[in-house]
Amino acid sequence: MFSLFKGLWIVLRHAFVKRVTVEYPEKKPVLPPRCRGRIILSRDPDGGERCVACHLCSAVCPVACIALQAAEDAHGRRYPKFFRINFSRCIFCGLCEEACPTYAIQLTPGVEMGEYKRQHLVYEKEDLLISGVGKYPGYNFYRVAGLQIEGKDKGAAENEQPPVDVRDLMP
């Protein structure tokens, strides 16, 4: 019985303390770097497109708002021929980033994405691809993958032996 009144009193007291609301457009909050906002596609440290079009992000996306088409360029690298995110559907859950094996897709603290037309919320690869590495410096998938691409011969990836000579009889 008394605790009820105490509760009322506590609530009343809260009416007279400083508000926590940030008056957003006038005052911009500093968002932590891992904040889940606008999605970008990054590049590896050598400037190549990181996305290898593995379709994992699109598979994991709970609202199925990522569509892409894999292709292979003249250098033997896989890349997305198109990569589309429909931000009018995206719920910024970050699962795509978690699924990405190459650190290509990343959520950034950018949250100001409002548009008057829904159609403008459809981002193509040109809108998504940035020129830097984003949150994860250093990683280049092709340096660890076994696939041969131009400039990286078979057996030249990290932790690999040179290719086997099948006709060699040495043990």
């Binding site: 699109s58 598979a59 199925a64 990522i66 569509a67 589309r84 829904r118």
Partner: peptide
């Protein structure tokens, strides 16, 4: 059941 991209594959033409 894992079919992906349903809400994006036609979005270049229309978001609806």
């Amino acid at each position: 059941h894992r079919y992906s991209g349903r809400t994006a594959m036609g979005a270049d033409v229309s978001v609806h």
